[in-house]
Amino acid sequence: MGQRPIAEVDHRYEWTYLYGFVHPATGDTEWFILPRVNGEWFNQALQSFAQQVGAGKHKQILLVLDGAGWHTCKNRVVPPGIHLKILPPYSPELQPAERLWRLADEPLANQCFETLDDLEDVLEQRCRTLMTMQSDIKALTILYKPAL
C-alpha cells in the first residue's frame, strides 16, 4: 500500500521512417531512413535532400508535398533553392511520391524483423535497388508528358 509496483514494460514496437523524394521526369529518387517523423526530422531530411541534389542559387527545386503536419510545421526550415508546394487535402493522386511506397514496401511484406537494425538493413538495400530503377519509377510516377 502506498507504493507503485515496479514492472517490466514491453513497448512492443520500435519505429523507423522512410522519407522518399522522386523526380518524376527522370525517375531519380533520394531516400532517407530516419528515426522520427516530425518537423525537426523533416528539416533534416530537407537539408540532406537539398545537398544531395545540389539545390541552391543556381539550381531551383519545386518540391510537392501533402499537408502532413510535419510538412507544414511552424519551425520548418526550407533550404536555399528548395520551393515547397503543398497539395490540397485528400489528394494523394496528385503526389507522385505516393506511388513509391508500394515499391519500397515489397521486401517488407509479411516479414517479421528481430531488430530495427535488421529492418533498416532491408530498407537500405531496397532503396539502393530503387535508385537504379529510374525507367520503372519514371513510368510509375510521371503525371503528364510535356509537349515538345
Rank of each mutant, 00 (worst) to 15 (best):
W15T: 15
L100V: 11
L140A: 07
E124N: 15
L62P: 02
Y19D: 04
T129M: 04
H23V: 15
P89T: 14
L123C: 11
V53M: 04
M133D: 07
P92Q: 05
N110D: 15
T29L: 04
Q95C: 08
E114T: 14
I6A: 08
P80A: 06
M133S: 10
Q134L: 09
F42M: 11
T115S: 15
G20N: 01
Y17P: 05
L18G: 02
F32K: 11
H58M: 04
D105E: 12
F32Q: 09
W31L: 04
K74Y: 06
M131L: 07
C127T: 13
Y13C: 06
S48A: 11
H23A: 12
L108D: 09
F32D: 09
G81Q: 05
M1P: 13
P79Y: 03
Y17K: 06
R102Q: 05
D66V: 08
V22A: 00
L143C: 03
P35D: 14
R99I: 02
Y144W: 11
T132K: 14
W41V: 06
E93S: 09
T141H: 04
L116E: 15
D136K: 00
L46Y: 04
G39A: 03
A7I: 09
Q60M: 05
A147C: 09
N38F: 02
F113K: 12
C112V: 15
T26C: 10
A97F: 07
L94K: 15
E114N: 14
I82F: 01
V53S: 02
V9N: 05
V53Q: 01
P79V: 04
T132G: 10
S135M: 05
Q60G: 00
C73D: 12
H11A: 12
V77M: 04
L123G: 02
E114V: 13
D118I: 04
C112F: 15
Y17W: 11
S135L: 06
L123V: 12
P92I: 12
E8F: 00
R36H: 13
L84A: 06
K85S: 10
L100E: 06
S48R: 02
Y90R: 11
G20V: 06
Q52A: 08
M131G: 11
V78F: 02
Q95P: 04
R4P: 00
P35G: 10
Q125R: 12
A104P: 11
K74M: 05
V37M: 07
Y90M: 08
L140Q: 01
Q44D: 13
P88A: 00
T29C: 14
E124W: 14
I86R: 00
L84W: 09
I82L: 02
D66F: 05
D66M: 02
I6N: 02
L116Q: 15
E106Q: 14
T29Q: 05
A139Y: 08
T26F: 09
K57M: 09
I82A: 01
D28T: 10
L94R: 15
L94I: 14
L143M: 06
A147N: 13
L84Q: 11
R128V: 12
T129S: 07
G54E: 08
G69W: 01
M133L: 13
L116P: 12
A55V: 06
S135K: 04
G2T: 12
K138F: 05
I33A: 07
